[in-house]
Design a protein around this nucleic acid. Sequence first.
DNA 1: TCAATAATTAGAATGACTCTAATAAATCTC
DNA 2: GAGATTTATTAGAGTCATTCTAATTATTGA
Lengths: 139, 139
Amino acid sequence: MNHTRPYSASLDRLRPAGLRPTRQRLALARLLFETGDRHVTAEQLHGEARDAGIRVSVATVYNTLHQFTEAGLLREVVVDPGRAYFDTNTSEHHHFYTEETGALEDIPGDRVVLALMPNTPLGTVIDRVDVILRLKTDS
Amino acid sequence: MNHTRPYSASLDRLRPAGLRPTRQRLALARLLFETGDRHVTAEQLHGEARDAGIRVSVATVYNTLHQFTEAGLLREVVVDPGRAYFDTNTSEHHHFYTEETGALEDIPGDRVVLALMPNTPLGTVIDRVDVILRLKTDS
DNA sequence: TCAATAATTAGAATGACTCTAATAAATCTC
DNA sequence: GAGATTTATTAGAGTCATTCTAATTATTGA
């Protein structure tokens, strides 16, 4: 912990992405990256910012999430039509998703192994492989 | 082909699902199931119905897609946040998705094999496994 | 046939997200 | 550092997919 330069870790993320270290981006980066791996929606992050006393508009939250995703700092997870999740864990891994509760959780990359990859349609290459284990409560 | 009872195949799908064979449901069932496996959005299906001269409201298209999904006649495919796809192929299989074009295509179930399933979180069981191979054009 | 039940409808409402065009902040040049 | 340039932020309007509402209409069971 370096209390004299509390934003330096976030600064170091923004710089190589060519993103100006604005007050809003730095604050959102701290919320996102200083508490371990997490999954957030824009609405959640906006709420957290508000609770932390950071004044930031919804538009900026969306802009920032997309810019961070472009820059490889975040990864978008598609599990729900009509709500985008962003994952701070950008390493190779997959997800558990419980529709009933909206809970989204990482599965370590080495716990899921895909075999026998099919040929892709002509003119395309694989960009990414998403595996989602959809869960239900077993009551 | 039995031209004297053109709706009988669709009828036979609705009956066991406990869905009354209304004009709208029968017509949508024909559009969905009489041309082999396909992927549709509500908007697409509504457009097709319109083009085929079937008067059906958007609300009914949504209701019907959801009821058919509940009944196991369709399967919802989540590949895009903000747009729901429905697949008439309900057998075990996975998907190719090309974000740039919106193209969604089946991968036969036996071309993707998942190994080493992880333990699910306490109190949950696996409901379904979705594998999405996200493609990009290789230009 | 007629009541009871269920489905359909138009249009309003919602919710997540994007756009606009005006203001403000960060950076670059001297 | 001052001013010019570039880039970000913002509030609020706009959009798009989807769902809701409450009234009408169709289907079914007696």
